[in-house]
Design a protein around this nucleic acid. Structure first.
Ligand SMILES: [Zn+2]
Ligand SMILES: [Zn+2]
Ligand SMILES: [Zn+2]
Ligand SMILES: [Zn+2]
Lengths: 165, 165
DNA sequence: TTGTTTGTGTTATAACATAACATGAATATA
DNA sequence: TATATTCATGTTATGTTATAACACAAACAA
């Protein structure tokens, strides 16, 4: 993650986010000899509808509307696959899933989550990782996975709160 | 959090952890004019049985054994109170609760979680916070809450894995 | 005492997630 | 092509985590 994600810029061309995510996913699956089935692709698209993490059960009606008679296991399987491929991340504090804007290479993901507009934007956690590594090393702990979820107010919502008041 | 928590030292006097937690809780509740009822105190004691986060539903049998005929809401209410007072923390990635070793002053909590022995040890997240603040400021995000949960292997378990192999 | 707030009991249900097995599609092998 | 195998999905049931809503009683304040 070198550049800032566009997610908190409310005027960005989000269709571009979606298109890019789907193209990248197709490409990576081809390279990796993985199957991006219709259900998996649809789930990915739905998760990318916007930058707000989506719960697994919120996907079910949309799948039904698209003609898939799916039950929870189907959704969870698709999400599991997409997570394994690095196309989506799970936000533990929300029990929800969000698209990854740079699935091409493995990375440590952290999130800034706005409690007002509900958008979650992926964060560059390299500096956080350095701090964590140092702390962990002090006590001899071997890190395998890092979960960083920050809740607060995004720039847009700060403005709106100020205006409203 | 100035000193290291004893949680990853398997030979520490854990009864001391428990006693200290209960004493501090009683003291703080007196100061704050809050009621540490029998159920709340018992839940706190149960959560402190060891350094392994405990699920809400795991508390129910113990409450029953102590003569409280409690249902889930009772446990969640007690946990909510204890969290508000800063006596326990919730680990989102485990859906579980663990005692806080320094409830006397508010602080940002982070955790090192061993996936082998299941212990979760609270971490000094001041350095992490500095890194996060910097990243958040870059995009104009106002932080209100930080969730940091690191999964890996504690020193004890690293040794045991090495020995076993 | 009286009224109010607070904590708990109780029942029901919501929200999130997985186990287990059947079936059919895609892929690999011969 | 035929066959075997793997993989994705359908299906049913259930497990796990958490909360809503209302009744009641204890603690507290006046
Ligand atoms: Zn976008
Ligand atoms: Zn916002
Ligand atoms: Zn201890
Ligand atoms: Zn361990």
């Amino acid at each position: 993650m070198t550049q800032t994600d566009p997610g908190f810029h409310s005027d960005h061309d989000h269709q571009h986010c979606i298109d890019q995510a789907l193209l990248t996913a197709r490409d990576l699956c081809r390279q990796r000899r993985q199957r991006l089935t219709p259900i998996r692709e649809l789930v990915l698209k739905l998760v990318w509808q916007n930058h707000q993490p989506l719960g697994a059960y919120e996907l079910l009606p949309a799948l039904a509307a698209a003609g898939f008679n799916s039950a929870p296991p189907t959704v969870y399987r698709a999400l599991e696959f997409l997570q394994q491929q690095g196309f989506v991340h799970r936000i533990a504090s929300l029990n929800a899933y969000v698209g990854c804007p740079h699935p091409d290479r493995p990375h440590r993901s952290g999130f800034l989550i706005c409690h007002r507009c509900k958008r979650a934007i992926e964060l560059d956690t390299a500096p956080v990782h350095r701090a964590l590594s140092a702390s962990a090393e002090e006590v001899g702990f071997r890190i395998e996975q890092e979960l960083v979820e920050v809740v607060g107010l995004c720039p847009d919502c700060q403005q709106q709160e100020a205006t409203h008041a």
